[in-house]
């Protein structure tokens, strides 16, 4: 079962998570501990990286118009910053006493905090990226919602001309996202729904054409309308399912059923 829900987050955090876990285990096994080497330099490197992340993080917040991101990111940045202070304190304490147990605790707490803060930050950023994809999906839903007003061939031409680019964009973005996910079940759900939308698109166009012709000849209008509306509903349901799955970040047992 994957812990991180995207390959990017996994590739960034998994190596550090493994190292932090090892340190925690070693610390528990050797409570009194060996003398710690001077960690001043590696801690300074971490501090510089933290300062850069905080700078880039606040720049991202300032440039974004995503209110949820603006709300979610600062606590994660504070967590990382506070944790780096713990590391600096640990470094000072270890220089004075390389056997200091409280310093080791601070070292573990600081490393763990950086891992958790960076994880929260990446999650907030990732959720914001997902919201962008969802906006594209909703754009397609908006076009599907106005299908009923298409009752002339000229309207159909305009409709297809407008719908095609948003549909292509949605397909491309969902497809890229699907490849990013670590949960196989979520990936399969996205692939299935996207495939359905792709297959239903020509059926929809043809359904609208049949409806327009039926209206012009005044024959079978009700059936044509019912058929068209069914396809619209089916496509909309699949897009709603895509939106739902895009928002899943944790493993859900029931998804296997």
């Amino acid at each position: 079962m994957p812990v991180f829900h995207t390959k990017t987050i996994e590739s960034i955090l998994e190596p550090v998570a493994v190292q932090v876990s090892k340190l925690v285990i070693l610390h528990e096994e050797a409570e009194d501990g060996n003398a710690m080497p001077d960690l001043c330099r590696p801690i300074q490197v971490v501090k510089l990286a933290v300062d850069n992340l905080v700078k880039v993080g606040y720049e991202t917040i300032n440039f974004s118009d995503d209110q949820i991101l603006k709300q979610d990111m600062p606590p994660a940045l504070r967590r990382v910053e506070e944790s780096s202070i713990l590391l600096l304190q640990a470094s000072d304490m270890l220089r004075a006493d390389p056997y200091s147990a409280p310093a080791r605790k601070k070292l573990i707490e600081g490393s763990r905090g950086i891992l958790q803060g960076t994880s929260a930050l990446l999650l907030a950023f990732d959720e914001s990226e997902v919201r962008k994809i969802i906006r594209v999906c909703k754009n397609v839903l908006e076009y599907l919602a106005i299908t009923e007003v298409v009752d002339r061939m000229e309207d159909l031409v305009t409709y297809v001309k407008n719908l095609s680019p948003v549909l292509t964009r949605m397909t491309k973005e969902v497809d890229t996202r699907e490849k990013e996910l670590t949960h196989q079940v979520h990936r399969e759900m996205l692939i299935r729904s996207l495939e359905q939308v792709k297959n239903l698109t020509p059926v929809l166009i043809s359904g609208i054409k049949i409806y327009i012709t039926a209206k012009q000849t005044n024959q079978g209008v009700q059936d044509a309308q019912t058929n068209r509306d069914y396809v619209v509903r089916k496509m909309s349901d699949e897009i709603h399912e895509i939106i739902r799955v895009l928002q899943l970040t944790t493993y859900d047992e029931e998804e296997w059923d």
Binding site: L26, I43, L53, F125
Partner: peptide, 29 residues
């Protein structure tokens, strides 16, 4: 993109730090 790069740097620096600390601890275990 910048945020991912910055996060990568932190993760790498923290992993290196923790590895150094673990190495010292491991000698005792």
């Amino acid at each position: 993109e910048q945020i991912l790069e910055a996060a990568k740097s932190i993760a790498a620096a923290t992993a290196a730090l923790v590895k150094s600390a673990s190495a010292a601890q491991r000698e005792l275990v």
